[in-house]
């Protein structure tokens, strides 16, 4: 049983160390094979390790891994406020132009004019879910959601506006 050993000493390098080296090599090979077989044997007998998700059946109890990325969303709090300042960092960071920021001018209670986002347009059909926009955002306005059932009958439905209608920027976020 010396598969693993042969992978190490593959090709032309001859076993070194004469007969003793040869015997040692065979023993290490057998040992390393037994280690591999113990691992698979463990998995074979411990069915609780099985990671298969029987997806359409367990839709309610589906257990997605923490880092699974489904789409970009912008979280809003209960007062319909978001954290996006419209800095365009995400738009610049996106490698394939998925995000477009459309501005509007807003008047603050003090009477100053202030630039704010009108719409944050997100093209899911172009997105590769690379997470670069989320990393680039200085105010953590966008995050990756775990929804993944995105199929629709019309491509235009994949173009989404991330901020809710009538939403405002949160107090204190600059």
């Amino acid at each position: 049983m010396s598969n693993d050993k042969n992978i190490k000493s593959a090709g032309s390098s001859p076993p070194s160390g004469g007969l003793g080296g040869y015997i040692k090599e065979v023993f290490t090979a057998v040992k390393s094979m037994l280690v591999g077989m113990r691992r698979t044997g463990y998995y074979f007998t411990h069915h609780k390790e099985i990671i298969t998700q029987q997806y359409p059946d367990n839709r309610e109890t589906l257990n997605l891994p923490e880092r699974f990325k489904g789409e970009v969303v912008m979280p809003h709090d209960e007062k319909n406020e978001h954290r996006c300042t419209g800095c365009q960092a995400c738009e610049l960071a996106c490698p394939n132009g998925t995000i477009k920021v459309i501005f509007k001018n807003e008047v603050t209670p003090e009477g100053k004019k202030k630039k704010a986002i009108d719409k944050l347009v997100y093209h899911l059909e172009l997105c590769t879910l690379c997470n670069l926009c989320v990393v680039a955002c200085p105010s953590d306005a966008i995050v990756m959601a775990q929804t993944f059932e995105h199929s629709v009958f019309d491509r235009s439905k994949l173009t989404k506006v991330l901020n809710n209608p009538g939403s405002k920027i949160m107090e204190g976020v600059e």
């Binding site: 598969n3 693993d4 094979m33 077989m37 698979t40 074979f44």
Partner: peptide, 20 residues
Amino acid sequence: WFRWTFPRLRIDQLLNLEWK
């Protein structure tokens, strides 16, 4: 068990294993 544990050998490794 062998089949689902070990990766496939190359042809030279295969012949090495047998003859050496």
